[in-house]
Structure formats: C-alpha cells, structure tokens
Simulated scan of single mutants.
Amino acid sequence: MKKIIKAMPLLMATMGLASPVMAGVHWGYEGEATPENWAKLTPEYQMCDLGRNQSPVNISGAIKAQVTDLEIHYGETSGNIVNNGHTIQINEKNPNDYVVVNGEKYTLVQFHFHAPSENEINGESFPLEGHFVHKNDKGELLVMAIMFEEGDKNPVVEKFLSILSEEEEVPVDFDKINIAAFLPKSTGYYRFSGSLTTPPCTEGVTWVILKDTMTLSKDEIEKFEHEFKHHNNRPIQPLHGRLIISN
C-alpha cells in the first residue's frame, strides 16, 4: 500500500513526544486548560494563538495537482499502548514502518486518536480520527490522518483496546500486530502545511489526510470515548490563505 508525508522537528511530536518545557504545564480539553486558553498557560504555548498555519482545518476547495503517490510501508510492529491522559497512543519499539515522499523516507514514530475528529472534510466531522506521526532524518514531521466512520469492526483496533490498561500512564507492551489493517486501499489524499494540534502548536508540519475512510463498530467507538472521558479534539483553525492540494 502506498502514501505520502512530510514534516518538521520532532523535539515535540504530537501527543506524548513533549519537550522539557512542557513538563508540569497542564493543558487539556476541559475547564481552564481548554484549547482556547492554551496560549495563556505559558509563553511557550503562544504559537497556539499567534500561529498562521495552525491545525486542524476544514478541507474545502482543494486544488487538484500532479503530485507523487504516497508510498506506505506498514506491516507487523511491536511496541506499547498507553492512555497518556490526552489520548490513546501506540508507540513503536523498533520503528520499521515508514512512508516515502518524493524519494525521502519518513519513519513512523507513534500514532494516536481523537474523538470526534479534529480535521473536517467539506464541513463533515467524523466519530474518530487517527494521527500517524512520522519523522525523517532531518527531524521534520509529517502527520498522516485517517478518518473512521461507524460500520464494521476493525480487528486490529479490537486487539489494541483489549490490552489497554484501565489506568492512565501505564504502557502495555504488545508484539507483532499488523497495523496495515488501519489503512484504506485507496491512496487518495489532501495535503497542506499545518501544526501540531496540541501544545506547543509548533508549525512546519506537513499534513496528509486520506480521502477514503475506515470503519469501527459502534462498540469500538464507544470504548474510545469511554477511555477519553471527554472530547479530545482541538477546534478548527483558520486557513489564512493556505492552499490545500489533492491528488
């Protein structure tokens, strides 16, 4: 299967790859630490308010362009799964999964989920969105997003949810789970320049959102919502003249 991505420094890659600056600064999705207040929590989060290329966005009016296909090389992986208090995150132990864009390799570092979706497509929100965070040898980040709709269950998601600890910050190891089952067959995508969707909202992240969706059963979606205990999606951000391209 194939896909594309591009990126920015990993000194704080989405969810869980936080910098030392972020340690001890509480942010979240409820109370006084909601997305609207992130920039007020510490000067290091000012980009959440001042940035002009912030994510997520509403995908609308995409421009058709001749771009290279996404090359996605996903297979069996080992690592751990954890509820880190913000999301359910899967970390790779020995990263072997990667994508190739314009001849450059971006290695999958981790992936996590937001319910409901953060990005929208033509104004439509989805029950769940997966963010697959990659970086290249220069430390640049590329996030590939996959939307999930209610439908047939996903056996791989079922496996992950069955081993997830009920307690926060308790990683559970797993071995040889084929994460290619997360991917749709089509490689159609939208691409734009954006940011991390969590503090410090660093910009320079290349976003690739797959056009085709995947499905989860109603029960699987409810399990995610139960684990999150609240919505964990940042509101849509203005485009500020950015172009969105599609293949």
Results as ranks from 00 to 15, higher is better:
Tyr29Ser: 00
Glu30Ser: 08
Glu32Arg: 10
Thr34Gln: 09
Asn37Phe: 10
Asn37Cys: 02
Trp38Phe: 03
Trp38Val: 03
Ala39Phe: 12
Ala39Trp: 09
Ala39Thr: 02
Pro43Leu: 06
Pro43Tyr: 02
Glu44Arg: 08
Tyr45His: 08
Tyr45Cys: 05
Tyr45Glu: 00
Gln46Phe: 02
Met47Glu: 05
Met47Asn: 10
Met47Ala: 10
Cys48Ile: 06
Cys48Phe: 03
Cys48His: 04
Cys48Leu: 04
Asp49Gly: 00
Asp49Ser: 14
Leu50Gly: 00
Leu50Val: 06
Leu50Pro: 00
Gly51Lys: 01
Arg52Trp: 01
Asn53Gln: 05
Asn53Arg: 12
Asn53Tyr: 04
Gln54Pro: 00
Gln54Arg: 11
Ser55Trp: 00
Ser55Gly: 01
Pro56Trp: 07
Pro56Phe: 06
Val57Lys: 07
Asn58Met: 03
Asn58Val: 02
Ile59Trp: 05
Ile59Met: 01
Ile59Pro: 03
Ser60Trp: 02
Gly61Arg: 02
Ala62Trp: 07
Ala62Tyr: 04
Ile63Ser: 12
Ile63Cys: 01
Ile63Val: 13
Ile63Met: 11
Gln66Ile: 07
Gln66Asn: 14
Val67Met: 13
Val67Gln: 06
Val67Leu: 14
Thr68Val: 06
Asp69Lys: 12
Asp69Ile: 09
Leu70Ala: 14
Leu70Phe: 12
Leu70Val: 05
Leu70Met: 11
Glu71Ile: 13
Glu71Pro: 01
Ile72Pro: 02
Ile72Arg: 13
Ile72Lys: 06
Thr77Lys: 04
Thr77Gln: 09
Thr77Glu: 15
Thr77Asp: 10
Ser78Pro: 11
Ser78Ile: 10
Ser78Asp: 14
Ser78Glu: 13
Ser78Lys: 13
Ser78Arg: 11
Gly79Arg: 12
Gly79Phe: 15
Asn80Trp: 15
Ile81Leu: 13
Val82Gln: 15
Val82Arg: 15
Asn83Ser: 15
Asn83Val: 08
Asn83Glu: 10
Asn83Pro: 07
Gly85Arg: 11
Gly85Gln: 05
His86Arg: 14
His86Gln: 13
Thr87Leu: 06
Ile88Arg: 09
Ile88Ala: 07
Ile88Lys: 06
Gln89Met: 14
Gln89Asn: 06
Gln89Tyr: 07
Ile90Asn: 10
Ile90Ala: 08
Asn91Pro: 00
Asn91Gly: 04
Asn91Val: 15
Glu92Lys: 14
Lys93Val: 07
Lys93Gln: 15
Lys93Tyr: 09
Asn94Val: 13
Pro95Ala: 11
Asp97Phe: 04
Asp97Thr: 12
Tyr98Thr: 02
Tyr98Glu: 05
Val100Lys: 08
Gly103Arg: 09
Glu104Gly: 01
Lys105Asn: 01
Lys105Gly: 03
Lys105Glu: 11
Tyr106Gln: 05
Thr107Asn: 05
